[in-house]
Nucleic acid binder design. Structure first.
Length: 617
RNA sequence: GCCCCCGUAGCUCAGCGGAUAGAGCAGUGGCCUUCUAAGCCACGGGUCGCAGGUUCGAAUCCUGCCGGGGGCACCA
């Protein structure tokens, strides 16, 4: 019984057979479908079948279709449906307590046997799906913008993997070349005095980032001086300033492969990367491969020349190479400078070509801020002109900026919120709260620290993931640092409560997990209460939420569903005693339900959103 | 000028063609001698930016307008 109807997908399959049986003599049923959705709160039942689409196709009255469907369903999936009611164009189904008990038992059993959360999809090795995210520049440390990118990219990669879309490969394309890198190198060479991260005890990315800021400050001073003393225009001064000239010279030497420049470049990049690795590790973000623009831009140039030969690009008198995309509503676009050096898009052309050679991916997801929408439109169009088979794999997953109440974050002006610093600050706050708490009094200092970092991570990640990627995040510190309400720690807390119950069940009642499953199969039980039906409904629909979330490349859907589940569970927890003051039968049932809520929270958080779930807090 | 994204409660957001539009925060008032109060309950708070249209049904889709943001570089 419980095995026959694992989730709403299974119910839809059953409904489809009804349509097949009835379309033969009742008209066109082929393209219509019964949407299945959770029943809204005010009506009895857990699952609602929406009749409108079919009603229209069959040209029958909703009442008639609904009642016939109900009768048919009740027989078809025996013992599942306890009651049903047609309201307007909706058929509300109420599942029997017996069904739910068996459903829950089957899920728990499967979980115990397979050691993982049962889902309707298997992880697959084919096709290959590439997800590029993070992709930082090596001239400054990671900030809140990267944190949003990282958590989003990470979660989307996991969503695709758990819903069985294919083998997901996570890529981090390091932007390690260009004028900004040269500026930083120049500052270090001029004013660094031979200092290193080791000699100063600074984290490598911060160490290097400071030189970038230093360069920008000196450069700004120089420009101001030129304007003041030489009477230059701002624009002219910015172009003529000796510092920028020197940086450009450095870039030329870099492109020419000057060993001295390359050596400094390599060393400084390594410092930064070491710092990045540490930050990624703390945030729990992993990549399958790091790629470097310095290694892909050359291939990009080749593609540009290829297009020139094919006649899809054209050369101007100054030698620069362009593509004309005006016929598809875009502009003309520079692909290679007159002096043969590459621009931003050149590198992206090369990168995707190399990826195609290596992976033959079916999809190339770029997790990149929304300001680059146009860039990716152009990229796709250019690849099409080149006739590349992978042109249509390009998918830009754009997300909006993280802004401060004061406005945009600007690294040049030092108004960014640093990824490391913010996590430190959150961790310190969490630690303070843990120290004040009664519950953690017997935990060691080490354990408290670890827990504090997990709480901090949950807070920051959930804060980033809970909003639609298309929407700006207005970063208000107090809100991000709030561990209550609609927050990551709220989910952790709910999970930890459940784990405490399961521990106590074992210790005080001898109810281990196997025992719960066994007893659940043996005992009858009392009527389900409303809170239980709502929890079961949410658990039943969980795979659908996952699917939709993956379908839309939007983890916020999942984040929301998990929050609602936790919220509902806390209500339940406050309403009924799980362990104490309940009969043995009730105890087993309530524990089983709690356990499954916990596993579902853990699956969504740990497996997909990559938010840790401590067993106690 | 053209293109893209966003306008829902005081604030931050859910709701993505279905039923009486929901949360968190903020405000007010309750609940720790029984399982973790990072929790729960109650109250107050909304012409879903505006105007048309599409249909059995629109916060949701289409058109126009208004407001906020981003983009249209021999910057990345």
């Amino acid at each position: 019984m419980g095995g026959t109807l694992k989730d709403p997908f299974a119910l839809r399959e059953v409904l489809r057979t009804w349509l097949e049986e009835h379309s033969q003599y009742e008209g066109e049923g082929s393209s219509v479908d019964f949407p299945v959705q959770p029943t809204v709160v005010h009506y009895p039942g857990e699952v609602t079948v929406v009749l409108f689409p079919v009603v229209r196709a069959l040209r029958r009255r909703p009442q008639e279709v609904g009642e016939r469907l109900l009768r048919w369903l009740t027989r078809r999936i025996e013992g599942v449906i306890e009651g049903g009611q047609v309201v307007g164009g909706f058929l509300n189904l109420r599942f029997s307590g017996e069904f739910w008990r068996e459903w829950l038992r089957a899920r728990l059993m499967q979980w115990l046997e397979e050691g993982r959360y049962p889902l309707p999809w298997k992880r697959k090795e084919e096709p290959v799906l590439l997800v590029e995210f993070s992709s930082p520049n090596t001239n400054k440390p990671l900030h809140l913008g990267h944190v949003r990118n990282n958590t989003l990219g990470d979660a989307v990669a996991r969503l695709l993997a758990v819903t069985g879309r294919g083998r997901v490969v996570r890529l981090n394309l390091i932007n390690d070349r260009g004028i900004h890198i040269c500026k930083t190198m120049l500052a270090w060479m001029k004013w660094g005095g031979g200092a290193t991260p080791q000699s100063t005890g600074k984290k490598g990315d911060h160490f290097v980032g400071d030189f970038y800021v230093l360069f920008e400050r000196r450069y700004k001073d120089e420009v101001e001086r030129l304007v003041r003393e030489k009477g230059m225009s701002e624009e002219e001064a910015r172009r003529e300033a000796p510092l920028i000239r020197e940086a450009q010279e450095l870039l030329r030497r870099w492109e020419a492969g000057d060993p001295e420049v390359r050596q400094v470049w390599k060393m400084m990049n390594e410092w930064v990367l070491e710092g990045f690795r540490e930050t990624y590790q703390r945030y729990g973000v992993m990549f399958d491969a790091f790629e470097f623009e310095s290694e892909t831009y050359a291939r990009g140039k080749e593609l540009v020349y290829e297009g020139l030969e094919k006649g899809v690009f054209y050369r101007k008198e100054d030698g620069s190479i362009w593509v004309d995309l005006t016929d598809e509503g875009l502009d003309t676009k520079l692909l290679l400078r007159g002096d043969g050096t590459s621009v931003y898009i050149t590198q992206d052309l090369g990168t995707i070509d190399l990826r195609w050679q290596k992976y033959r991916m079916q999809r190339m997801v770029y997790v990149v801020a929304e300001e680059q929408r146009y860039h990716f439109q152009v990229l796709k169009a250019v690849l099409r002109r080149l006739g590349k088979p992978y042109a249509d794999t390009v998918f830009h997953l754009s997300y909006a900026m993280v802004e401060l109440p004061e406005g945009k974050m600007k690294s040049r002006e030092g108004t960014v919120i640093d990824a490391d610093d913010f996590l430190d600050e959150l961790t310190a706050l969490a630690l303070e709260q843990i120290r004040c708490s009664e519950k953690a009094k017997d935990a060691s200092e080490e354990e408290k620290r670890e827990l504090a970092e997990q709480v901090a991570l949950a807070a920051i990640k959930f804060y980033m993931l809970r909003v639609d990627p298309n929407k700006k995040i207005l970063f208000r510190k107090e809100e991000a640092m709030d561990f209550e309400g609609y927050s990551g720690p709220f989910l952790q807390y709910t999970y930890a409560r459940i784990q405490a119950l399961l521990r106590k069940a074992q210790e005080e009642y001898g109810l281990g997990r196997e025992a719960i499953v066994r007893l659940l199969g043996e005992r009858g039980f009392a009527e389900l209460i409303e809170e239980e039906r709502r929890l079961l409904q949410m658990l039943f629909f969980y795979p659908v939420r996952l699917w939709e979330s993956a379908q839309r490349y939007d983890p916020s859907l999942l984040a929301n569903a998990l929050y609602q589940l936790a919220k509902e569970y806390n209500r339940y927890y406050a309403r009924v005693p799980i362990l104490r003051g309940s009969s043995e039968e009730e105890r087993v049932w309530r524990l089983a339900l709690s356990w499954w809520v916990g596993e579902t929270l853990a699956h969504g958080c740990v497996e997909v959103l990559n938010i840790p779930m401590p067993a106690r807090m």
